[in-house]
């Protein structure tokens, strides 16, 4: 599990890596929320390129971040989701909440 944060102007990008499950989600969530709180972005990008496993805990993570962002009017984008993760995000209807791009 890893999270790398990049801040450019009003955009926070979180590069997620490794396995995203109930065990690892908490740490990822805290890293993302800290960066959002600190930088107050208008756009949060979650990059899934290096995530090699995700279960519905990942959906919870995305939905939770969306709920936080909505309060400040910020947008959420999901980029580079590998096929299996893309399938999971589609199943949950995430594209109704965030712009969703596969790898």
């Amino acid at each position: 599990m890893s999270v790398k944060i990049n801040v450019t102007g009003e955009v926070v990008t979180a590069y997620l890596g490794g396995e995203l499950d109930h065990h690892t989600a908490k740490e990822m969530r805290e890293a993302i929320d800290n960066a959002v709180e600190l930088n107050m972005p208008t756009l949060l990008i979650l990059d899934f390129k290096d995530v090699n496993f995700m279960d519905s805990s990942g959906i919870g993570l995305v939905m939770g971040r969306y709920r936080n962002l909505v309060k400040t009017g910020a947008e959420l984008h999901i980029t580079q989701a590998p096929p299996q993760i893309y399938k999971m995000l589609k199943l949950a209807g995430i594209e109704r909440l965030a712009k969703l791009e596969g790898r």
Binding site: G60, L61, M88
Partner: peptide, 14 residues
């Protein structure tokens, strides 16, 4: 609630 999506069984079934 909170950070759980409520999709566990839906994922298993699909």
């Amino acid at each position: 609630g909170g950070e759980r999506a409520g999709l566990g069984f839906a994922v298993m079934q699909s």
